[in-house]
Simulated assay, not measured.
Amino acid sequence: MNMSKETSLPPVETGFIEDSSRPVISYCAEVKNAVCAASHAHPRAQVIFANRGVMRVITKENTWLVPPAQAVWIPSQVQHQVYFPGAVSIRNLFIDSTAAASLPEQCMVFNVTPLLRELILRVGETEGRMERSHLTARLMQVILDELQQIKPARLNLPMSDDVRLHKIMVNLIHSPDDNRTLDEWAQTAGAVSRTLSRLFLRETGMTFGEWRTRLRLLEAIDRLSQGQSVTQVAFDLGYQNLSAFIAMFRKTLGTTPGRFFQTLEKGRF
């Protein structure tokens, strides 16, 4: 990720609006190769969500790669920073502190249910035109009810700020079909494979192979949710045949791609 070529974005002013009569305020934007100018916090809690593109969200304790199937919950006054490596359609929600009082106190990645996704998109369409209407007020309340149900996602992808790992991770994010072994990555990363192996476990809690599989899973979920076929996704992600992809999916999640989306809708992952 070449930081010098990224657009620097100031903190969104919406996060600093304190108005209990507007419990939920939507923020929509189209960005490309951008990054928040600096780590920041604001009085409003935030749902960081994009219905297109992948984000990298950083807090003091965690760094996550977030596809459109997921979002990040950031409580009030929690320092965070977001990178947008590519074209991203931002559809964030800012929650007034009074409305967020009963919502989770910890940051988390969570799966976005189809209902919540449609609510976020709908509020984004009406924000600014109908913000005081009864319709928008009802939508806001349903959103708050949905946020009461969120739980940490079983699937998330921890990142690392270690320069050597970061180089590998960014390359794989852009080319998840890359099948190079850790030994083959060693020269690119500037460290021997044994060191890289230890770093992956220490920084992410996963082996290199487990991390790459998790990346491919998240990428697969994103692509399948956009209507791509299982066969197309399998080959695009570097699998030699469809059976190998389905076997990986079943081994990791205990189910097939089709059945996974049924359980995802019920919030089990």
Rank of each mutant, 00 (worst) to 15 (best):
A247D: 13
N156D: 14
V230A: 09
N171V: 03
L224C: 12
V163C: 06
L121V: 07
P11N: 07
T195I: 09
R117N: 12
M1F: 14
V78N: 03
I150K: 01
L218C: 10
A186N: 00
T252R: 13
L116A: 05
A45I: 01
I246T: 11
V31W: 12
M206F: 09
H40K: 13
E125M: 12
I90W: 08
Q77I: 08
Q232W: 06
G86C: 06
L139C: 08
A234G: 07
Q106V: 02
M130P: 00
T14Y: 12
L242T: 09
Q46I: 10
R138D: 12
L172E: 05
M130D: 10
R56I: 15
Y239K: 02
G15D: 09
K32S: 14
I246S: 00
M130E: 10
L165C: 03
S21D: 07
R214N: 12
T263F: 13
I150M: 02
N2T: 05
G227V: 03
A99M: 04
A69E: 14
P104Y: 02
R22I: 07
P152H: 03
P67G: 01
P152Y: 01
L9C: 03
I25D: 09
F84H: 15
I58S: 08
L65A: 04
G53W: 05
F16M: 09
V35S: 14
R198A: 10
S133F: 04
Q70A: 08
F208P: 05
R154H: 08
E105L: 12
G267D: 07
I25R: 15
L157V: 11
L93Q: 08
W211R: 02
L242G: 02
G267L: 06
E118F: 08
M130F: 13
M169I: 04
K32T: 15
H80C: 05
F249P: 01
A99C: 01
G238H: 01
A50E: 05
Q240N: 11
Q226A: 14
S8E: 15
T204P: 03
T63S: 10
G258Y: 09
Q77T: 08
F49T: 11
Q262L: 14
R198Y: 07
L121D: 14
L201D: 01
Y239R: 00
R91V: 09
L182K: 10
F200L: 08
F110M: 01
D178G: 00
M130A: 09
D96T: 06
E219M: 13
P68L: 08
